[in-house]
């Protein structure tokens, strides 16, 4: 078996690379969101709303990568 030969879809690797940034971003969003809620528990409602807005926006990038992995 020739190890060096790469079989399968290169798009998957591209998807993996595209997800790195989104993963870091989602981690930062939720980490800082938790910190904010811990500092001001009474502001939980608006903070949670904004956390999920930011999460949706960042994860959009990962999902675009997923789409491109299959669409192209």
């Amino acid at each position: 078996m020739d190890i060096a030969a790469i079989e399968g879809n290169l798009n998957s690797i591209g998807y993996g690379i595209s997800v790195i940034g989104a993963g870091i971003g989602v981690g930062i969003v939720f980490g800082l969101g938790m910190q904010a809620i811990a500092r001001q528990p009474e502001a939980r409602g608006p903070l949670q709303t904004n956390i999920f807005l930011g999460f949706a926006l960042i994860e959009a990038l990962a999902i675009l990568g997923f789409v491109l992995a299959f669409a192209i």
Binding site: A56, L57, E59, A60, I63, L64, F66, V67
Partner: peptide, 14 residues
């Protein structure tokens, strides 16, 4: 772009 395209598309794709 975000409101009218990316939002609904990612909403479904997620």
């Amino acid at each position: 772009l975000s409101v009218f395209i990316i939002r609904p598309v990612t909403h479904a794709l997620r």
